[in-house]
Amino acid sequence: MSDIAIARVGRRRAKYRPVTEDSPLARYALIATAVLFLALFLLAPLAIVFLDAFSKGIEPFLAAFHDPDALAAIRLTLLVAALAVPANLAFGLAASWSIAKFSFPGKSVLITLIDLPFSVSPVVAGLVYVLVFGGQGLFGPWLAEHGVRIIFAVPGIVLATIFVTFPFVARELIPLMQEQGKVEEEAALTLGASGFRTFLTVTLPNIKWGLLYGVLLCNARAMGEFGAVSVVSGHIRGLTDTIPLQVEILYNEYNNVAAFALAVLLAGLALITLGLKTLLEWRHADELSGRARRH
């Protein structure tokens, strides 16, 4: 980077373009292409959410939140995230502790398996739970006999959400804890700290920003998941509809303002997530895992 900066100063003084810089024409053409592409494909869809939500003024926008079904959807979404995120957080901590602090055979296979849910289509993620717990599924008859509902009920929604958000915390913590090694923990333990105390006072402070980063992404996906939840929810209004499913219902009823009003909540969540994520990457880049971020 510093090489380039120096080269730029030199260019102004001597009016020569360094050989490692593209011609101004190429540069402006490429910047224009990139900005135009991002504006058309990313920014326009984001802008339209807010514009359509307020297209008839603020009153109809607010009215959308007086609908009891909408409120039920918001409550359910919060409940699902409150269950799914801590579950995957606990898993992420356990998985990264055992993988980063110990050596055992088959470790890379285990890491690949943890990443597996990212390669499965959300719809297939929902389907596998229907095959296990649904009416025609493996445990379906037994569950029906005992009056337990998992599919087309809240437990199924929580399970499907846990599946699609499964790797977020673990895949952030595993490389981070591997980079940090185990010397500090070993020092604490030899000085007489208990295992749990070592984790709380040595490991946790080291990984806190990475942990927050993983939780942030996990939560955003948990609240916004559509495909997997749609398969297991059964779309019972006021009971098993999360915010994204309620958006779909309202949109299909041509109730655009209400659909986009709820969508504003999710788009706002996405913007906050992006903002915090970017802030973490700027401020605490060295305390996050250095590996390329793909999800």
Partner: peptide
Amino acid sequence: FVDLPFALPTAV
């Protein structure tokens, strides 16, 4: 903003 498609729920 490049990460927007990761963060924005697909239904939105």
